[in-house]
């Protein structure tokens, strides 16, 4: 899994796609896909490891129902160890359409932070049955790394052989004061929560300070971000 996470830090559009292929192998599932919520066009498939994952993602997001859309909407993981065993009234259109698909089990993990909903990581298998707890833990770690990648454009990249970097930045994103500052900035600058978090990170990056430090200043009202971009900020998250 460490290898998969390292691929995620690769620059360029290939990073996430390679992580999906390697991630499917590491998790022991048949397919893995990432779909992200776009500001104006809804949920879009961004990367997938194979055709089975792609077909299933396309189907559920076209129909607007299924474990993936539920995961994005509620910010909670949704597991379907046997698609054939789902009550037909849960996702009626999907039940009609999915009969001919090779996919038999689907596991969806939210990508996001609190009320910030970024997208969903979906693992599919051709055989029914639950995920082991090790597989579930690995998938959660991958979803967390994807969250950091999607919300962390412009993060200083340090050379570190193990996973300290991703772990440190993931930890910083969990501080209460960072969430509080994100909420405050969203009101101050009339931004959505994800945009507010990107501004916060951009400012931290530009000023060479930690996001926690900057957040404390904002919550204490000693610092207010300029509504006009100060030029040091990275572009809004690359969606690949």
């Amino acid at each position: 899994m460490a290898n998969v996470l390292r691929r995620l830090r690769d620059d360029g559009p290939g990073g996430i796609a390679h992580a999906m292929t390697a991630g499917a192998v590491a998790l022991g599932v048949d397919g893995l896909a990432v779909s992200l919520l776009m500001e104006d066009s809804g949920i879009e498939l961004v990367a997938c490891s194979d055709e089975s994952a792609q077909t299933f993602e396309d189907l559920q997001f076209t129909l607007g129902e299924g474990p993936g859309p539920d995961t994005v909407r509620a910010g909670i993981m949704v597991w379907v160890p046997d698609l054939a065993g789902v009550r037909p009234d849960r996702w009626p259109a999907l039940a009609m359409e999915s009969a001919g698909l090779a996919v038999r089990a689907v596991f969806c993990f939210p990508i996001g932070l609190g009320a910030i909903r970024v997208g969903v990581l979906t693992a599919v298998r051709r055989t029914p049955g639950p995920l082991s707890s090790g597989q579930a833990d690995d998938a959660l770690v991958l979803a967390r790394a994807l969250t950091a990648r999607c919300l962390g454009g412009g993060e200083p990249r340090r050379q570190d052989p193990d996973d300290r970097v991703s772990r440190d930045s993931a930890h910083e994103l969990q501080q209460a004061v960072v969430h509080q500052a994100t909420g405050m900035i969203s009101v101050q600058l009339s931004l959505s929560l994800p945009q507010a978090l990107l501004r916060l990170r951009g400012h931290a990056y530009g000023s060479g300070r930690t996001i926690t430090d900057i957040s404390r200043e904002i919550v204490a009202r000693r610092l207010r971000l300029d509504p006009n971009t100060d030029g040091t900020e990275p572009a809004v998250a690359d969606k690949d």
């Binding site: 539920d70 995961t71 909407r73 509620a74 910010g75 909670i76 993981m77 949704v78 597991w79 939210p110 932070l113 609190g114 009320a115 910030i116 707890s133 579930a136 959660l140 969990q174 209460a176 969430h179 509080q180 500052a181 994100t182 909420g183 405050m184 900035i185 969203s186 009101v187 929560l193 919550v219």
Partner: peptide
């Protein structure tokens, strides 16, 4: 979403805490 799994319950509790902190900032 009536998460079926214990892991889902744990994760949902942690997520709820984060949403509360974000709301504190919005309201403040």
């Amino acid at each position: 979403a009536q998460s079926e799994t214990e892991r889902g319950q744990l994760q949902y509790a942690l997520t709820s805490r984060i949403v509360l902190e974000q709301v504190k900032g919005i309201l403040a």
